[in-house]
Design a protein around this nucleic acid. Structure first.
Lengths: 245, 245
DNA sequence: TTTGTTTGCTTGTCAGGACATAGTCTATCA
DNA sequence: TGATAGACTATGTCCTGACAAGCAAACAAA
């Protein structure tokens, strides 16, 4: 059974193990590999694709980590489930909305290049008197307000301006300026809409809001960005897949 | 500099690569390896520990995945930061509270062995007429109410009773019955406390609550448990570290 | 029938080698 | 002085080979 039928292109710049990952992912999502079905053993699979066992294993390792496969020594490898959603990743709301086909728009409510306040200075571990870009934005989808976002960004990495923030996502801007995000610490909670938030979000005082605080590090260990966002609870929630290791 | 000084015990049942992982983690958390410092290259490190390069790489791979290290081809490997919190994992609230030294208590508000309702049947993909354990619990910490939890559990895996639920966490019970959780799909949002929830949680109608819906799969692909929880927003939030891959 | 043993299967761990590729630095040349 | 080419370094990819360890089913003995 699970003997797969993948095309491995050895002239492709895509690593072989990654081609295998993509192939098996596709097979699972298309239903060719049904949940619960067993795959051939590593050695045979590797042989049938003319790959070495370590390469095959590396591919399967990745799929196990992402939760699509389960391996048991002495038993074999099984497809767990096709219902793995994309893991909650380091992406901006803007990117997420665009990917699912919505039309996000951003209104920049305030934009300043100013001395960091205490909260931002602690979150970004900046010295006293250091400056940051501080701005608040309102994100709407198809004309409906969705999120109110307040952010502080280090000013020694990229020069920012109000116009680009209005047309592009924050993470997109930072990425195109050469920032490679690696890590983010994030906290999700809830709060009641106050008199400032309610009219902006097109809701009433006392409505439920989802809150998200995030601080992101780039690959050199710099704390680049910190933000406090609130979302309308009736139109947004955080969805994720947890994988037990 | 980053030449490390680890003890590798080749007679230990702990795999060599994992001993290296633990050693480097300890060095980072103790400050021996400072954030931003560079490690020796893989080959030298492997040689100095009398390990092969693949073994050394496997250890470093794990640390890169968990966000402690960053590698750049042609450049080297660097310690990113020591402020990686534990990744949001597949654990129960009960376990989490106990680990941080709190004294969680559970009051079982209702407990039934009944036919699954539509929501539970869909979440657990059960046939019509299948039975589940359905129960609601109130979790308090040091006498203060924290969470109101409603769960449905398949009844063909483990026999449950009200008494054990009152003294142990749900996941603890299921784990000790041989269930190995692998995956969970989870959604976090917000809502306003209603007239049923408010008195139980010791708050007022209209207070902010964090909601969490979760469906968990075990390693055989069975959908074992689904639940809908609400937490007092003033005493609970979800904290996590996201790693960019 | 039950219990212990063996055998074979599959994944887990580890070694050593080879070449590719992407950065960085230096030396050279215009 | 500035740009370019090359050497060097470190990680990325891929291979072959070997043995260990856990699991299950078949088998043998009580």
């Amino acid at each position: 059974m699970g003997s797969l039928n993948l095309n491995i292109d050895r002239s492709s710049p895509v690593p072989l193990y990654h081609q295998v990952v993509q192939g098996i992912e596709a097979a699972i999502h298309s239903g060719t590999l049904a949940p619960g079905s067993r795959l051939d053993n590593e050695i045979d699979l590797a042989a049938s694709l003319n790959l070495s066992r370590p390469t095959m294993r590396k591919a399967m390792d990745e799929l196990v980590r992402s939760g699509l496969l389960v391996r048991k020594r002495g038993v074999g490898t099984q497809v767990v489930s096709s219902q793995v959603r994309r893991h909650l990743e380091l992406s901006s709301l803007f990117d997420d909305l665009q990917r699912v086909g919505s039309k996000p728009a951003t209104e920049v409510l305030s934009f300043m290049h100013m001395e960091a306040d205490d909260a931002a200075r602690e979150a970004l571990q900046l010295p006293k008197g250091a400056k940051v870009y501080h701005f608040t934005r309102l994100r709407t989808v198809d004309g409906k307000p969705l999120a109110l976002m307040e952010n502080s960004v280090r000013d020694d990495i990229v020069a920012m301006d109000e116009a680009s923030l209005a047309s592009r996502g924050l993470y997109e801007i930072l990425r195109s300026a050469g920032v490679n995000f690696r890590l983010a610490n994030q906290r999700i909670g809830a709060v009641i809409a106050n008199a400032y938030q309610a009219p902006l979000l097109g809701t009433t005082v006392g409505a439920a809001l989802v809150t998200m605080e995030r601080t992101a590090l780039d690959d050199t260990g710099r704390l680049v960005e910190t933000g406090h966002h609130v979302y309308r609870a009736d139109s947004y929630s955080f969805e994720m897949t947890l994988v037990q290791r």
